[in-house]
Design a protein around this nucleic acid. Structure first.
Length: 539
DNA sequence: CGAGTTTGACCGGCGC
DNA sequence: GCGCCGGTCAAACTCG
């Protein structure tokens, strides 16, 4: 029952659906906030100050202060807006019209103010005043339109900026790949042939992951292994089970988790790129999170295809595959921790072969960044440093030691441990009084189903903004549509700031998106329409 | 009735 | 070669 969620981090100026209801009543508010996040945050992003993230986020706090104006709007023009509005209201209450020049700001509140004016007028203010106010309202509407236009423009610029950044990252990593490809592959092949297969596993998936992350479709194209192109081709065509089965038997590349994709044998017998491709998909990103829910929600559609009792764990392991596109190779395993059954371990594997909704992109990019970090661990390079930074920046705002790497496992795995319940917004201060701790902790990715957050936080949303804002986006909050609950705005802004302001994360996101969607523009409006899942309906 | 889940069977890798 | 194990399949089942 995940309808109505998934609109999260990504603004989409192309579609211009600022205030559209999108797919549910919940998304509208957040979507608007997303844009506004872009709107006010973008200039800071351009400043390129990585630390602004926290600073700005901190400045967005005080969600408990319900009297605050929505930060996004306040920030957009000037800081005197709130004062202007208050003054305006005071003046009007005293029969003194506010100058029209001061009315060009907070639209929602001004509209409300206008409404209250009416009652004042009814009380017997002169018709002259009435005319003035009518003019003010007209002016206000005009300003609203301008404001909207500016939002559009800013979002558009922001997207252009992101696209440029993505392109830059792509080019840089392509260059590096070209430089390192030959020597590294030769070296790795020699190593793998001479050393343990485990060592081979450790290197190969990482390399390919890096290729995907860095170059995405372009790099894959350049290096075109026929397996990867084959996979892309297959991904675009419908598959039935028979085809899958055949593909599984005849081509190890057809199913990422297929038993045929085992690394050692592939390495020995297949071209390096092909085996590497297969191996790459063995790299995993594991997310540990406390959750009562049977499965964390990450923005994708999943279909359960199996359940097994794993050795050493009384809790069954569930197997899911991504169903957002036919033939998507991404799988995930969900299992409760044997030691602490409140901990849900979700392990992702593979790369999506389809555009992702923003909510899923956040998760995918994070896991991709994690996988990239895994790569960087064995392949020190400028990118490695960057990728570590990516993950660190993606995660560390929430906890300084969440990510652990295990390359000794059967498959190299990055574990994002979110079970330590860090104060996700610890960089914001001060925390509001929490009547009770959240009963569970969910992965701070957007796209949580609407049904969860209230349970998560055990309190009204507007008091929950200390939690990672990324998942607050889908919480029903009708009020927000009207006056943009500051706490939610803060939360969303802080969360998005934590992610989007960081140039390195933006790069990671861009690269991940590139790799994930295979060249589809991340801002494609198709994503926006794609983002509401009905998966986990029975979860 | 269709979509999703359940669950036993099956498959392949791996260790002994 | 055999058994264990992880992973997947697919028929049966459930649910809306």
């Amino acid at each position: 029952m995940d309808k109505g969620w998934g609109l999260t981090l990504e603004s989409d100026p192309v579609t211009n659906n600022f205030f559209s209801s999108k797919t549910s009543s919940n998304t509208g508010a957040f979507f608007r906030l997303s844009h506004q996040r872009d709107m006010f945050q973008f200039p800071v992003t351009l400043a390129g100050s990585r630390d602004d993230c926290r600073g700005t986020s901190a400045s967005l706090s005080s969600p408990s202060d319900d009297t605050r104006l929505p930060v996004n709007e306040v920030d957009f023009f000037s800081d005197k807006k709130s004062r202007v509005i208050d003054d305006d209201r005071v003046k009007k209450e005293h029969g003194e019209p506010a100058p029209a020049s001061e009315l060009d700001v907070n639209t929602g509140l001004l509209l409300l103010t206008a409404g209250s004016d009416q009652s004042t007028v009814d009380d017997g203010v002169s018709s002259d005043m009435e005319d003035r106010r009518a003019k003010d309202e007209v002016e206000l509407k005009r300003m609203n339109a301008e404001n909207q236009k500016l939002k559009d423009m800013l979002s558009h610029v922001n997207n252009n900026y992101t696209a440029l950044q993505m392109h830059l990252v792509t080019l840089m990593q392509q260059q590096r790949n070209r430089e390192t490809e030959t020597t590294q592959e030769q070296h790795q092949v020699q190593e793998m042939k001479s050393e343990e297969k485990k060592h081979g596993e450790e290197i190969m998936p990482l390399k390919i992951l890096d290729l995907r992350l860095s170059g995405g479709a372009e790099a894959a194209e350049m290096l075109s292994t026929h397996s990867s192109s084959e996979e892309r081709t297959r991904s675009g065509t419908p598959q039935n089970n028979v085809e899958k089965r055949i593909g599984r038997e005849e081509s190890p590349e057809s199913e990422s988790w297929g038993p045929n994709s085992k690394v050692p044998k592939l390495n020995s017998g297949k071209p390096i790129d092909q085996s590497a491709e297969a191996t790459m998909r063995k790299a995993r990103v594991s997310v540990r999170a406390r959750s009562e829910a049977p499965m964390i929600t990450d923005g994708c559609q999943w279909r359960k295809y199996g359940q097994k009792m794993a050795k050493g764990n009384p809790c069954p392991r569930a197997y899911y595959r991504c169903t957002m596109a036919v033939g998507c190779p991404v799988r995930k395993q969900v299992q409760r921790c044997a030691d602490d059954r409140t901990i849900l371990i979700t392990t992702y594997e593979g790369n999506h072969n389809h555009p992702l909704p923003p909510a899923a992109m956040a998760m995918a990019s994070t896991t991709a960044a994690a996988a990239s970090m895994l790569l960087s661990g064995s392949m020190p390079s400028a990118d490695g440093i960057m990728n570590q930074n990516l993950l660190a920046r993606a995660i560390l705002p929430y906890s300084p030691s969440m990510a652990t790497i295990s390359a000794s496992a059967p498959f190299p795995t990055v574990t994002l441990d979110l079970t330590h319940s860090p104060n996700p917004l610890q960089f914001r201060s001060p925390p509001p009084p929490q009547p009770q701790p959240p009963p569970q902790f969910q992965v701070p990715f957007p796209g949580q189903p609407q049904s969860l957050p209230q349970e998560l936080f055990g309190q009204p949303l507007h008091n929950q903004s200390k939690f990672s804002g990324l998942q607050l986006s889908q919480v029903p909050q009708p009020q927000l549509q009207q006056q943009q609950q500051p706490s939610l705005a803060d939360t969303v802004s802080a969360a998005t700031a934590a992610i989007t302001k960081d140039p390195s994360f933006t790069a990671a996101l861009a690269a991940a998106i590139t790799s994930i969607i295979g060249g589809v523009h991340p801002n494609s409006s198709s994503n926006a329409s794609n983002n509401n899942n009905t998966s986990n309906n029975r979860q």
